[in-house]
Design a protein around this nucleic acid. Structure first.
Lengths: 207, 207
DNA sequence: GTCTATACGCTGATAGAC
DNA sequence: GTCTATCAGCGTATAGAC
């Protein structure tokens, strides 16, 4: 069952095979360029099974969406529970996301490079999903207790995670060729300089 | 003709009416949830005209895509030409993008919140388009001449523009309710702290 | 529960009048 | 160049056998 946290999908149940095939195809071609027949073919099951398990194409996407967000939420909650400060929590989450981009490319692409709104109108937008709210809560908490500089919470969240998300998207689009974990240290240093308090001694060096 | 730089689309030509209608519909529902008939209806023209002007649905999207990127490129080139330092160039571009998010919402949504790859397979990905390359060039130039700290160019580009792009996307998704220009100063301060050189005096304040 | 065969609607595209 | 009427193909969903 777990896609994000286990190495091989040991679960060979039909439901899991359907979700795995759908994830691959949706990421490869985009939801609307994938037909039920494509999913059925790659999963090695029949159309009837798909309708029995998920009620149709949109049901498959909905099941996949909820499942992956639940897994991501669990990962983040684990980090939060096992890490003391907001700063350390953010840093661990960032590193984890960079790692996942290499090891779980499809999942990251489905989460960070998909317009779910276009095929899951009933679902809450991904920015409002539990894992993303958790991340914003960390930042807000950090701002309140002075770990981060005082600033608008949305600016804070964008400053802390915007660079990471952008880098992930550039990597998923094939622009960045270097594995992201190798860039983690530079990215994190830059991120902390942006949001941590402290005076910055800018020696004016404009020509 | 110009969408991004002029206030009202004075051009009432059929070609412009088609692009305007398509832009609205694509942003509202997503490319695949819009039919030719929808575009034809909203533009107040016939299907035949659409095929005469753009050769079909994908042609409309392609025309829109190229036109908007060309306009954005011109805006960025103007900023570059009229602004001395890489830092000032980035800052002016960021403020301009935040302004456009309020005044040209549809255009920004089409550029920053659309998976063009899913319906324009022949076009180069938007990260490789001229305007985005220009932005990266500014950052690379700034790193080379020491305006920005030494770092991987991709990390630099993500650090400079990632927060802005994230904030724009959150605004387009309706999460951020405040007009972005009001948040510009905070965002820019944070961005520069991240990438500008200079020692930062972090008084350790972890509890 | 799983599968195959089929039906129906929608949509992109075309033909041909004006 | 602009328009209307029409077609053909695809894709979702269902019916019904096993």
């Amino acid at each position: 069952m777990p896609y994000l946290t286990r190495d091989e999908p040991v679960d060979e149940s039909i439901g899991c095979r359907i979700l795995t095939a759908a994830l691959q195809l949706f990421v490869e071609r985009g939801y609307h360029n994938v037909s039920i027949h494509d999913v059925q073919k790659r999963a090695g099951v029949s159309i009837g099974s798909i309708y029995n398990h998920y009620g149709g194409k949109e049901g498959v996407a909905k099941g996949l969406y909820r499942h992956l967000l639940t897994e991501l939420e669990a990962v983040i909650d684990n980090v939060i529970a096992g890490t003391p400060s907001p700063q350390a929590q953010c840093e661990r989450v960032i590193r984890q996301l960079l790692d996942f981009t290499e090891s779980r490319r499809d999942i990251m692409a489905f989460i960070f490079a998909t317009r779910h709104r276009e095929f899951l109108p009933g679902e809450p937008p991904i920015c409002n999903s539990a894992p993303f709210m958790r991340l914003r809560d960390i930042v807000r908490h950090g701002i309140e207790q002075g770990t981060f500089r005082a600033m608008d919470p949305w600016v804070g969240a964008s400053a802390v995670f915007g660079g990471t998300i952008r880098l992930i998207q550039l990597r998923l689009d094939g622009m960045v060729t270097q594995p992201l974990p190798e860039l983690a240290d530079e990215l994190i240093v830059t991120t902390w300089r942006g949001v941590l308090p402290g005076e910055i001694t800018t020696s004016a060096r404009e020509a």
